[in-house]
Design a protein around this nucleic acid. Sequence first.
DNA 1: ATGGCTATATGTTATAGA
Length: 259
Amino acid sequence: MKIATFNINGIKARAEALPAWLDEAAPDVVFLQEIKSVDEGFPRELFETRGYQVETHGQKGFNGVAILSKLPLSGVTRGLPGDETDEQARWIEATVTGQRKVRLCGLYLPNGNPAPGPKYDYKLAWMARMRDRAAALLQGEVPVVMAGDYNIIPQAEDAARPEAWREDALFLPESRAAYRRILNLGFTEAIRTRDPRPGVYTFWDYQAGAWEKNNGIRIDHLLLSPQAADLLQGTGIDKDARGREKPSDHVPAWIDLAT
DNA sequence: ATGGCTATATGTTATAGA
């Protein structure tokens, strides 16, 4: 089962590039972030005609996540538990049934800039809620995959110019510690496990020729519960997507699970 | 480098992203 995550930076803007990548990469499951669309405005037919079930959790203008799946999804829930007042669409869960069941969590973690400030407080509070949810999911028997745009640069080797990120919410020690607290529950980050080299990036800014200079960062991650990690067969990052017509500033990252 | 570009809605400018 090939499972990918892709921050598309707007579904309307990616109405050509996203289907083109889907047809080439042929993932079974895709987590999308920053659909920047309400549910009613999401072009489901683009994906349903390709055999995908479409589950969205959108909002107007910003944020928004979705799951596309060629295998049946059930038990879909929308929103990260733990704060009834949180209206930002950043979390969606579903259970996919192939040869076995896997619980899927798609996430768009808050950016948090500027730090310090209320946006950074929201980021850290969100991560504490995510940790609680992750711990609860580990209590079950079903393998768990939590994938998406974490907006966390875990280590200095994950940025071409780490010094430029020292004061940034994506790289502040407190942000990275919060990410490690989630990992330390027992999750494995799939991409690094299979390819431990430094300089593996998933995002290149639109500005200042970042792509041409390979001035990238790694902020999209796929976390696996122990049961899911046992099924890991392969990983990849579709870096070529960044060099195409009208690209997102992120590229897809994916895993292959033996299910 | 003082965010240099991109996307969306609030729309000929503001807000957000990372």
